[in-house]
Write a protein that binds this DNA or RNA. Structure first.
Lengths: 211, 211
DNA sequence: GTTTTATCGATACTATGTTATCGATAATAG
DNA sequence: CTATTATCGATAACATAGTATCGATAAAAC
């Protein structure tokens, strides 16, 4: 996007700084040590991460909270909205479809799709749920490039292919499979069960620290 | 747990190998190159990762699929079941409570808790939903050490404290906040909106590859 | 039985990411 | 106005992770 050189590792931590800053009781300035303490990171790491996006840090006082939030939002691209659709309107899909916290991260969920005729209609918050046959038409019409895949594992491959055919270029996959996608399509797998298991393991091994 | 020296990075990839092996059409043997190709990794990396847990690789043929799956399950601790509870039975909490894929990862969701009296009862699949006042008693009685936090952000801090008071030592947090927990408690934050935003960004920057 | 081939595993190298040190400086106290 | 203190930012040292090279070897071909 811009020429700033930010490491992958840093990029993954930036959202957590923003989330923290948004929820912490307001104070005009905040120090790297305070952020680090709360998030279980080193203060030097925090300074280095923030230096790559903000430059509003000042000796003795720390960072101006509101400027830092604005800079993070700017850098992370949360100021211009991206649209996405949900494919698979089971319980998880519906929860995501109606979740109202996406706008804080620059995302908007436009509509849901499901193969089951009974699901077609509108969600609790009034979002459209359409049959999967309409996916291609809809994504073309509204230029949707991002899809959230929430179908059962046995349907995941087929659903994934339909999304690709519909012109979707990035897929957030909640099915516990690794659907193969053609070149140029980004798939990010989110496996809640595996994350929970990892947590259980960390605990068993006494790896005490925030992850 | 055991003395094997496995890097953090490797540990994070191991579950994805297992998920892939479980869903790929069965074949007796599989090569590192095949796994790497499907998961978008380097084959050397795959070999190195697998070497730390299995040692069933053989020249010319690759790895014995079933042995590899068994070794991964063993290593990741998916063979002995850990129990967990869900705190906050909104739509996401309910979806997790009734999701049937946890056993594959050695996890079992025992019950749900909610502050809202109307939610108390049983879930669609028959799991108990109890009032939050019962959390401490329940966790003590059944020795529950793992909790999944699915409450709205404004309740997260309070709910987190209740969980800690109830003896929970590891929290998988879906609320978009960073609840501070005392020493010895592991908190793993899962922010779906932030992950979606990151995906949108990767796409915008043409970083084509599976994440 | 020897040669060829596909693949692993070990070692060495390179890149990336983290932590320590230290000088610079804004705010405060004297 | 000078000294002190808290904090940042840059540079350098260190640690971790990823990649390339290469010898070893099991299976298959000849």
């Amino acid at each position: 996007m811009n020429g700033k050189q930010v490491s992958k590792a840093t990029l993954q931590r930036l959202p957590s700084y923003l989330t923290y800053l948004r929820t912490v009781p307001y104070r005009e300035n905040i120090s790297s040590a305070a952020i680090a303490g709360e998030l279980g990171l080193g203060e030097i790491q925090v300074r280095k991460d923030l230096a790559s996006v903000s430059g509003c840090g000042r000796p003795k006082t720390g960072y101006r909270t509101d400027k830092l939030i604005a800079d993070l939002e700017e850098f992370l691209g949360y100021k211009n909205i991206d649209n996405a659709v949900v494919v698979g309107c089971g319980r998880l899909g519906m929860a995501i479809l109606d979740y109202n916290g996406f706008s804080e991260y620059g995302m908007n969920i436009e509509a849901g799709f499901d193969a089951d005729e009974d699901k077609v209609g509108v969600s609790q918050t009034g979002k459209e749920i359409l049959p999967t046959e309409k996916l291609e038409e809809y994504c073309g019409k509204y230029d949707i490039k991002i899809g959230i895949l929430c179908v059962p594992p046995e349907c995941a491959f087929q659903a994934c292919r339909m999304m690709v055919d519909a012109g979707i270029k990035a897929i957030l996959n909640f099915a516990p499979v690794c659907p193969s996608a053609p070149e140029g399509i980004i798939v990010k797998n989110v496996n809640i069960a595996a994350q929970l298991a990892q947590l259980a393991n960390s605990m068993a091994n006494r790896e005490y620290s925030e992850i």
